[in-house]
Design a protein around this nucleic acid. Structure first.
Length: 422
RNA sequence: GUGAGCGUGGCCAAGAGGUUAAGGCGCCAGGUUGUGGCCCUGGAGAUCGGGGGUUCAAAUCCCCUCGCUCACCCCA
């Protein structure tokens, strides 16, 4: 075959769409219930936006971005994440003039140049929210709750919420110092990656997966015990809110998140099965991000969750999704006059919002009936020259295996009867 | 970037050196006069991912290559 979908991309065929619709409708209706408004940002941005915010030492920037120079010699990048563009839009449109916090949600495609595997693609999709302009821990709780309710509504079970605080610009430097201080004597025993992390990105020492590094992680200083007064209070109030909401969480001192812009609250939602790349949802607070983009200091918190991974888990757990059947009416027709009436009738049915297809009239009636049956149509309307001449049509109910002849003008009524028992 | 497994008609899938490469699903056409879902019959559709090699003979053995999948790194 000459062409196929590029590596790491996939076609979402009609039979898959039932999952997508289910998940995406659940996401947007829930977000709107929480008072979030939808935002769509461009699919590509200035490369600098991501380099500066996500962090040069992160894998995303280091090796996963789809970056190219356009014909005008601008460096652009297919967005690898959603938060930075939303923050850019916040600044660009002066949203600080709106009542704070500004609540936004998005459902977008993202692009990361990775080796694809289960639940990971080069083009993938996220649902995410950002609440910008309020540092109240109640907003942290709200955002976490929104993510949690999403999975609850979908019907996924056995998920866990992992929570941590990595401090802010006041206390994190001190914590990092303690961390480096603690690790330095052990440096020779660490894996290659961790030896580099000590200098490049010490926080990441904590989520190393190497077995040999685990003992050092277990004994490492814990960030929540190094928080400054403000961060400690924020943390305490957040956990209180979550308790009040009845949302169970487990504090994970090793949870640090990959992107540079996080501060204070970080969290993830994980599926029941173990697996290192299985995170369903990740988020956190990013109080320093706006300043990096040249705006005034503005707090913010949000999350992003993977649609593909969500659907993967829906399937694994056998969650049944509503399957709105598509075709209600199929019109079989024979002969010149029958064909003309069929085309007109189809138009009328569609304008009455009844999904209708025209069967291939060059086939035998038997062939058309089979066709209708395999489509799962509810009714077949048969119009041959005989019916056309008499101004009638035969309306057959496929499920009931009954049919009757009705005047053409009454076909719509005949196929619109009471489906409440369906 | 690293490692492992796999690549046979649209899909699933037999086949493990030797005449025309099974079968199932799906698709198409029929089973008498304009009628589906079951059943029956027939049909179309594969240079066995690609290239090279071994051999009288390869889908079956060897090498290379491409692709897919899974895992690692990392992340959604």
């Amino acid at each position: 075959m000459r062409y196929r979908a590029p590596r790491g991309t996939t076609d979402i065929l009609p039979e898959e769409q039932v999952y997508w619709r289910y998940v995406q409708e659940c996401a947007s209706s829930l977000a709107e219930t929480f008072g979030y408004g939808r935002i769509d940002t461009p699919i590509f941005e200035d490369t600098g936006l991501f380099v500066r915010t996500v962090g040069e030492a992160t894998d995303i920037v280091d090796k996963e971005m789809y970056t190219f120079e356009d014909r005008g010699s601008d460096q652009v990048t297919l967005r690898p994440e959603g938060t930075a563009p939303v923050c850019r839009a916040y600044l660009e449109h002066g949203m600080h003039n709106l009542p704070q916090p500004v609540r936004l949600y998005y459902q977008i495609s993202l692009f990361r140049y990775d080796r694809p595997q289960a639940g990971r693609y080069r083009q993938f999709h996220q649902f995410g929210v950002e609440a910008i302009g309020d540092s109240d821990p109640a907003v942290d709780a709200e955002v976490i709750e929104l993510a949690w309710r999403f999975y609850e509504r979908l019907g996924l079970q056995g998920l866990t919420l992992a929570l941590n605080s990595i401090g802010d610009k006041t206390c994190r430097p001190l914590y990092l110092e303690r961390l480096v201080e603690y690790y330095t004597p052990h440096v020779e025993h660490l894996c290659q990656d961790c030896q580099a992390r000590i200098h490049r990105n010490p926080l990441r020492l904590l989520d190393c997966k190497q077995l040999s590094c685990q003992p050092y992680i277990a004994e490492a200083p814990v960030s929540t015990e190094s928080l400054c007064d403000d961060c400690r209070e924020h943390w305490g109030r957040l956990t209180t809110h979550l308790g009040d909401l009845g949302i169970a969480y487990s504090v994970d001192h090793r949870l640090v998140r990959g992107l540079d812009y996080y501060s204070r609250t970080v969290f993830e939602i994980l599926p029941p099965e173990e697996g290192s790349q299985s995170t369903l949802c990740g988020g956190g607070r990013y109080d320093g991000l706006m300043e990096q983009l040249g705006g005034k200091p503005t707090p913010g918190i949000g999350f992003a969750l993977g649609i593909e991974r969500t659907i993967l888990n829906l399937k694994r757990q056998g969650v049944t999704v509503p399957d709105q059947s598509t075709t209600a009416v199929a019109i079989a027709h024979m002969g010149e006059a029958g064909g003309r009436e069929a085309v007109k009738l189809a138009a009328q049915l569609r304008s009455a919002k009844t999904s209708t297809i025209l069967l291939p009239g060059q086939k035998s009636l038997k062939g058309q009936m089979r066709h209708a049956g395999s489509l799962g149509a509810r009714y077949v309307v048969i119009i041959g020259d005989k019916e056309a001449a008499n101004g009638v049509a035969t309306v057959r109910d496929l499920a009931a295996a009954e049919q009757r002849e009705v005047p053409l003008g009454e076909v719509i009524a005949a196929v619109s009867q009471d489906h409440s028992h369906d």
